[in-house]
């Protein structure tokens, strides 16, 4: 990688012109889609423009929210950044990879998967997607540690215990199979696992959806503390303005695959401009 005179950027993660189309990939699929047309489905080709022209930067220690209803494309954007799927167009850069000069969208799949070791971690809505439920809580944390080269059993145990303590999982449960954990506990283990190798970028996909309200509140509290303490650059995807308000400083609103509004979270909550944002805020105010 020729990083001759490239100075490291301020941001930890940057997306530019990011797009993902299912079906016919050409520009003919774009016409007639987006919020102005009220659909993400191309009338000409039938392709689904799940996300288009998405751009944002996230700095270390900052959390960015992506909000929208289901089908708005917010999770697609997250999966494209995570590498779970490949974007159709655009540029994704990480400060940790060639000082941001590399478009990681263009890396081959093995190189892409390697980023998940120490550059990007993901917390999924469904803990089963991020955990092996037939392995102990400690074993789930041992996975990223051994992948990063840890070879001392005791040091792995110590590190896992430390992480579990931070996510407030009782150490007495460290050697229990993840399958025996409640939903909230599983989510905490998943968060501990995501933080194991101290990734500079953390992606959270509906991290509390599916949890009971009281359990969700506890997990949100924990996430807020962790985001403040770790200095990680976080992207939080949610349909719930309550979650976005609690965790993020800035937010983008997505609908039908496009960004319709962006700004500081508290300002946008106070004074939403786009009718759709107003609708979301009204729903959150309940």
């Amino acid at each position: 990688m020729s990083s001759t005179t490239v100075a490291p950027p301020r941001w930890a993660l940057k997306a530019e012109g990011l797009g993902r189309i299912y079906g016919v990939q050409g520009p003919e699929s774009l016409d007639g889609t987006g919020p102005d047309f009220g659909t993400a489905v191309s009338p000409a080709t039938g392709a689904v423009v799940a996300a288009w022209d998405i751009g944002f930067e996230v700095e270390p220690g900052e959390a960015l929210g992506i909000i929208g209803e289901s089908g708005s494309g917010k999770s697609t954007v997250m999966r494209c950044i995570a590498g779970d799927e490949t974007a159709t167009a655009g540029r994704i850069a990480l400060r940790g990879v060639g000082h941001g000069a590399v478009n990681i969208r263009e890396l081959d799949p093995p190189a892409r998967r390697k980023l998940r070791l120490d550059q990007i971690a993901v917390v999924y809505q469904d803990p089963a997607a991020g955990l092996n439920l037939d392995v102990t809580a400690g074993g789930n944390i041992a996975d990223p540690l051994t992948a990063a080269g840890w070879r001392s059993y005791q040091r792995i145990r110590d590190r896992a215990a430390d992480l579990l303590r931070r996510v407030e999982v009782p150490l007495s449960r460290m050697d229990d199979l993840a399958r025996t954990f409640s939903g909230g506990m599983r989510q905490r283990v998943q968060i501990a696992r995501a933080l194991a190798n101290e990734p500079p970028v953390l992606l959270l996909d509906e991290p509390t959806t599916g949890l009971d309200a009281s359990v969700a509140a506890g997990v949100l509290d924990l996430l807020r503390t962790l985001l403040e303490e770790t200095g990680v650059a976080a992207v939080v995807v949610s349909h719930d303005f309550g979650v976005i308000d609690m965790l993020t400083r800035r937010v983008v609103v997505m609908r039908h695959g496009r960004i319709v509004e962006s700004g500081l979270t508290d300002q946008l909550l106070e004074d939403p401009q786009h009718p759709y944002s107003q609708q979301l805020v009204a729903a959150a105010r309940g």
Partner: peptide
């Protein structure tokens, strides 16, 4: 890493 987890 899955092999290492198995040993762990």
């Amino acid at each position: 890493s899955k092999m290492w987890v198995r040993l762990y």
